[in-house]
Write a protein that binds this DNA or RNA. Structure first.
Lengths: 249, 249
DNA sequence: TTGTTCGAGTTGTACAGCCAACCCTGGCTA
DNA sequence: TAGCCAGGGTTGGCTGTACAACTCGAACAA
């Protein structure tokens, strides 16, 4: 739960999500009308609509004028936190996550890094190279670049700490928005050594720029997964479009 | 333009999007207050909030309590239509799309297809194998499965038709929701022959299930891209989570 | 049988208002 | 100097209302 604040619409959304997961309306079944739900939960229709917008964005229900909402699927949707943190994701699927910092370097930011992290010309950054494991098996190499003030916190962590994002969040570093680019990369010498594959082997690559509530970039990361260990799933609709296709690189 | 209906909040959203793209507020700059915008556009604050929710979902602005919204980026965001249709996407980036149907087969649906398209046990499907090109160069192999009533429409199209989704939409087949899974696949004999690569070469794979406004599946597709031709980009936030990570297959 | 019309039901859009939670700054205090 | 605090500004959450746009089945007509 990335955000546990209890508000009416969150409670309604959580309850409906549970009901859908339990199959109370069936796959392809119809939800009760907004007005129905409003009286049932003792809230206004606006609040119900707010809750339903959440489920809509998650791809759990459709919605169109004139007819009741239809259940699209009962798939469990991950929270923002589980997506951002390898550790939380691994635990959510019942795996034992691990990690080891291979290298931390502090040095002046290059042009791309300054652009991505929106830094001043003379700013320094921390570059962290890390291998991540599931049940002890290496599955991903993570190269993260942090602005100086956050990198300093990361450097102070235990190199064998399972998670970085969790302690960072405990120290007040908030992650709220992330922009991901997913494509394919070929293993370099570091990847091959850390993942136990060959140089040139294909890897699924996710590049990510994460920002805090104020819109300041807090990390710029490049993760490379061994094939078969993960797939990325996205839901989008005419109502909510957050996915797009780009030309390579 | 996936949806050209003119409503107040759409107009406001479009105008703000343009202003942001023009750099009127700068990257990292602050938007005017909701109340400000409301009086400026002559609408209520609720309508402004609706417009801003759109921009928020697209990752253009942040939003948090207590302070004005901040511009996150000025990146052009693709419409749902450009994402769904290879043709529209190609044109939007100034490339010349092409396509050729290699094979259309009609036969009983197997178990996976019945599950994905939510079909009856004895239902038949159309399987379309197609190669897609950019400026004449093959970049993607598309394997789409359609339920019978839609497949019949596809079969009637010109095998060299550049787009299938456009004529389908003209004939009243609506695409509103899509669920995507992105991972890596290895080229089989068909892929190698059509894309001009070797069997076993890595390809970026996107599997997609698209549904209509009523929630009925209209296509189940598997696209395989040559590396370097496309990357998928996603924005998500604590407010809107539509991306997730899955275990491989 | 087929097509049309009608109307009840439902969601979409928009308005207005209220208060809480939160950010930030400037002034005050120790 | 450093820290605290008050207050104005801003967004989040919620309510209530009204009407428009749309779906879908039932009744009806050809």
């Amino acid at each position: 739960m990335a955000d546990g604040r209890q508000t009416m619409y969150r409670k309604v959304a959580a309850d409906l999500r549970q009901a859908i997961a339990d199959g109370a309306y069936g796959s392809g079944g119809r939800l009760p009308a907004e007005g129905e739900l409003a009286t049932r939960y003792g809230v206004s229709r606006g609040t119900v609509r707010q809750a339903l917008a959440v489920l809509r964005a998650d791809g759990l229900v459709t919605s169109r004028r004139g007819t009741r909402r239809v259940v699209l699927g009962t798939a469990r949707v991950q929270s923002f936190g589980e997506l951002l943190s390898f550790t939380r994701w691994a635990r959510s699927i019942g795996e034992e996550p691990g990690g080891r910092v291979v290298e931390i370097i502090r040095s002046p930011a290059d042009e791309v890094e300054r652009e991505q992290l929106r830094l001043e010309p003379d700013a320094e950054v921390y570059r962290v190279l890390r291998v991540r494991t599931l049940s002890g098996v290496p599955v991903m190499v993570e190269r993260t670049v942090y602005p100086e003030h956050i990198g300093a916190l990361v450097e102070a962590l235990d190199p064998h700490a399972v998670s970085h994002t969790v302690p960072l969040q405990e120290q007040g570093v908030l992650f709220t928005d992330a922009h991901h680019t997913i494509d394919l990369a070929l293993a370099d010498a570091d990847d091959a050594r850390l993942l136990g594959c060959l140089v040139g082997d294909p890897l699924l690559r996710e590049r990510r720029r994460t920002t805090d509530p104020a819109g300041s970039p807090v990390e710029w990361s490049q993760d490379r997964y061994l094939p078969g260990t993960v797939a990325f799933t996205v839901h989008n609709s005419t109502a909510v479009t957050s996915l797009s296709r780009r030309t390579g690189i």
